[in-house]
């Protein structure tokens, strides 16, 4: 396993564009801390975002995992191209001839995906922890370490998404087309949602059905955190709107994403096995 990761590390780290993308990804993850600096001071209106409770434990786990998940697109590019480059350089052929089995090849990519997700999760954990310790109103240990399931959900979400990218890379063989396909798939899921809602079901059933689609199921893992904010809720209450609060991470949602991950990785292997190189 260590050998497979080393192989993949050599390939990625020596590629300048991958290296730049990976570094900028982690810089961006850290940059969430900059949100704390957002401060308006316009005469009577004083607004400091950090004081609005977004850095309160345990809410910070939810907020940070949700926001940082958007940066995963950077790594998506790296992952799609690390797969498709093997095809365009024909190095996949050489790797197999040199004695890597097809299983090891897919495994080495999958291990990379897991490492990316794991490092991201640890990173987000560390950044959130520091921000929380600085700005949080509550600092009892029991509160700090509650709601950590958001980190687990974040990890699973990244693994699922990156596996999807990996699969597209194998399927399409060209990085630009694979990324295009990813966007197309997002549009497709939106289109299906629209059609189902319009013709078939009510809003609740539509949500349930859509929860089984890959990208939607990944998005569902960490739900939007903004309606949980006190400020937003008090505004909502004032205008007489009741905000439903079902923001928890559900086990079945994790299972759906894990199932997709399994499907993506095993079909990548299957495609590779069937294809003549």
């Amino acid at each position: 396993m260590k050998r497979l990761l080393q192989i993949e590390f050599i390939k990625l780290w020596n590629n300048r564009s991958s290296r730049i993308l990976i570094i900028s990804y982690f810089v961006l993850l850290t940059s969430i801390a900059l949100v704390a600096a957002i401060k308006f001071d316009i005469g009577p209106i004083q607004f400091h975002l950090a004081d609005q409770g977004i850095f309160n434990f345990p809410y910070i786990w939810h907020f940070n995992t949700f926001v940082t998940a958007f940066f995963k697109l950077f790594l998506a590019i790296v992952i799609v191209s690390m797969m498709s480059n093997e095809y365009s350089n024909k190095t996949i052929k050489q790797n197999l001839i040199d004695g890597l089995s097809k299983k090891e090849f897919v495994l080495s990519k999958f291990l990379t995906v897991i490492s990316f997700a794991l490092i991201s999760t640890v990173f987000v954990f560390a950044v959130s922890m520091i921000l929380g310790l600085i700005y949080s109103d509550y600092d009892e240990l029991s509160i700090i370490f509650s709601d950590l399931e958001f980190l687990l959900a974040y990890f699973v979400k990244l693994v699922g998404f990156f596996s999807f990218c990996l699969f597209l890379g194998v399927l399409v063989k060209r990085s630009a087309f694979a990324l295009g396909f990813l966007i197309l798939w997002q549009v497709f899921e939106g289109f299906v949602r629209g059609m189902i809602r319009w013709k078939l079901f009510d809003s609740e059933t539509t949500d349930t059905v859509m929860g089984f689609f890959p990208l939607n199921s990944m998005f569902n893992l960490v739900k939007e955190p903004f309606t949980r904010l006190n400020a937003v809720q008090s505004v909502a209450n004032q205008i007489g709107e009741k905000v439903s609060l079902n923001y928890h991470v559900h086990t079945y949602e994790i299972l759906i994403v894990l199932t997709w991950t399994f499907i993506f990785i095993s079909s990548s292997y299957w495609i590779l096995k069937k294809r003549d190189l």
Binding site: N14, N15, R16, N89, K90, T91, Q94, I97
Partner: peptide
């Protein structure tokens, strides 16, 4: 070695 030499061009 088959056909064309295949290596990582950036390495």
């Amino acid at each position: 070695i088959i056909e064309r030499p295949n290596f990582y061009p950036y390495m």
